Each structure stands twice: as C-alpha cells, then as structure tokens.
Simulated assay, not measured.
Amino acid sequence: MTGTLAELLTDTVDGGASVGFLASLDRAAATAWWTQRCEAVAAGRLAVWTAREEPGRVLGTVSLALPDKPNSAHRAELVKLMVHRSARGRGLARRLLTVAEEAAAGQGITLLYLDTETGSPAEHLYRTSGWTEVGAIPDYAADPGGVLRPTTIYYKRLSPPPVG
C-alpha cells in the first residue's frame, strides 16, 4: 500500500502542490514518509482515508492528525488532502473532505483546522465546503520549487461549542 501512496505523493509534488516536500521527491523518500505515517496510524495519532480505483491504485487521500493532549481532545488537524492529477476535476477532493469531516464528528471531534498555500486551488474547495478563513502567515513554507509562500489557516466547527 505504501507504494501506491508514494506514487500519489510524488505526483502531487510534481504537479506543484505544496504539501511539505520539494520538487524531485523520489519514490524511496515518499515511501519512507508513508511508512512513518502508517506507524502514526498504528499508534492512534493519525487517521487516513484513501480513494482507490481498481486494481488498487490510490487516486486520493486525506488524513486527520488526532489530538494528543487532554485540552485538545475536541479538535483535529486536517492534513495532506491529495488527489492524483489524473483524477482531478471529478469531485474526489470534496468527497474525501466530507469523509474526514464525518469521521471526525463521529469520534466526537467538534473543531477541525488546516493550513493551505495561499492562492492555491484548495482554497476554493475549503471556502465552498464551509471552512472559515482565519488569516495568512507570510513566508510559511517553501513550495516544491523552493520559493517561500504564505499559508492560509482555516477552521470548521462540526458542532456547536460546548456550553459551560
């Protein structure tokens, strides 16, 4: 499974998406990163969903970084929403986002947050999916080409905040 996830990650980076990696990400490094993610899943710190086509090729993925402190048990971070370039424009990102949101709500998580490169196509998805922009941080991370870019922070309430 990590091999097909690694192919998705390298395609995403090669396509210019800022998901934490620089261009020329090789398959071995992508596989190693996904292997670490699998360890985080096994430890209960990360939940990962994939969208696949037959015979098992991964077209997209999304993850939730789960809380690890008592005062943050109500929130999680949405991370690494990726869709293979060959599968874009079919609503897959929106479906993955919905799956992660519904799963989080089912686990009692009431608040999600994320960051995404300012000006990226992902911003439209988040805005039209009910996420609220908090603001932008300049020079937050390097894009795949190594250029520092701003990131925009978003949040979404999955249910009203607890009273009290």
Score class of each variant (00 low, 15 high):
T2V: 15
G3Q: 04
G3L: 04
L5W: 08
L5Q: 12
L5F: 12
L5I: 06
A6W: 00
E7G: 09
L9D: 03
T12D: 06
V13C: 05
V13I: 12
G15T: 04
G15M: 02
G16R: 00
G16N: 10
S18L: 11
G20C: 03
G20W: 12
A23M: 11
L25Q: 02
D26E: 09
R27Y: 11
R27W: 12
R27E: 09
T31H: 06
A32S: 13
W34E: 10
T35E: 14
E39P: 00
V41R: 04
V41P: 01
A42L: 02
A43E: 12
A43L: 09
G44I: 07
V48C: 13
V48L: 15
A51T: 03
R52L: 12
E53Q: 14
E53I: 13
E54C: 08
P55G: 15
P55Q: 09
P55H: 12
R57L: 13
R57C: 09
V58F: 01
L59P: 04
T61H: 01
T61W: 11
T61I: 05
L64E: 10
A65L: 15
L66K: 02
K69R: 11
A76Q: 02
A76P: 07
E77K: 11
L78M: 13
L81M: 14
V83I: 11
H84D: 15
H84Q: 04
H84N: 13
H84T: 06
R85Q: 15
R88L: 11
G89T: 07
G89R: 04
R90A: 14
R90Q: 14
A93K: 05
R94V: 08
R95P: 01
V99Q: 14
A100C: 07
E101M: 09
A103P: 00
A104G: 05
A105D: 02
G108N: 03
T110L: 12
L111D: 13
L112I: 09
L114F: 12
T116S: 15
L125W: 06
Y126G: 08
T128P: 01
S129P: 05
G130K: 04
W131Q: 02
V134H: 10
I137F: 11
I137C: 08
D139W: 14
Y140A: 12
A142F: 07
D143S: 07
D143K: 00
P144Q: 02
G145W: 10
G146Y: 03
L148N: 06
L148C: 01
R149H: 07
R149I: 03
T151C: 14
T151P: 00
I153Y: 15
Y155Q: 13
L158Q: 05
P162N: 07
P162L: 14
G164Q: 09
